[in-house]
């Protein structure tokens, strides 16, 4: 077993352990954990059976397996970052809506308090 394989196996195992630990401590949501889990398992399988990568390389007509690996890796990272940007945008938009609602509610509350202060005491109430 070559050094590259050992590095790949170690890396994927560390990732899997970290994922498990983060999930256990409620530091990661399942929907994000899933994609990382798939990636870690993929790396593990390729590290264990490098012949899979070589076959895929010949199948696609590429010369160097490492090129295929780097291409896939960059593509995966690109998509993940894009997804995070999307999620961030959604969260920002929701935060904006919440901020607006908070502002409106605060105004209503202040007004209600003000009205209550200015009204003469209601004799029908105790």
């Amino acid at each position: 077993m070559s050094a590259v394989n050992i590095l790949g196996i170690a890396g994927s195992l560390i990732t899997l352990i970290a994922l498990f630990e983060m999930l256990r401590r409620h530091r990661l949501r399942e929907k994000y954990a899933l994609i990382w889990f798939v990636i870690a398992v993929g790396v593990f399988v390729v590290a264990l059976f490098p012949v899979l990568l070589q076959r895929a390389t010949t199948l696609l007509g590429l010369q160097v397996p490492a090129n295929l690996l780097f291409f896939i890796a960059s593509l995966v990272l690109l998509i993940l970052t894009l997804q995070h940007s999307y999620e961030l945008g959604r969260v920002e938009e929701r935060t904006r809506t919440l901020a607006e609602e908070v502002a409106l509610l605060r105004l209503e509350l202040e007004r209600a308090t003000r009205d209550a202060d200015h009204q003469p005491p209601d004799p029908t109430r105790g």
Binding site: A99, V102, A103, L107
Partner: peptide, 21 residues
């Protein structure tokens, strides 16, 4: 009447708050 946004949202945020009101 003053409506206070908890942080800066830009004119768009302020105006949507106003339109909702």
């Amino acid at each position: 009447e003053v409506c206070r946004l908890p942080f800066n949202l830009g004119v768009g945020g302020a105006m949507r708050t106003g339109y909702r009101y």
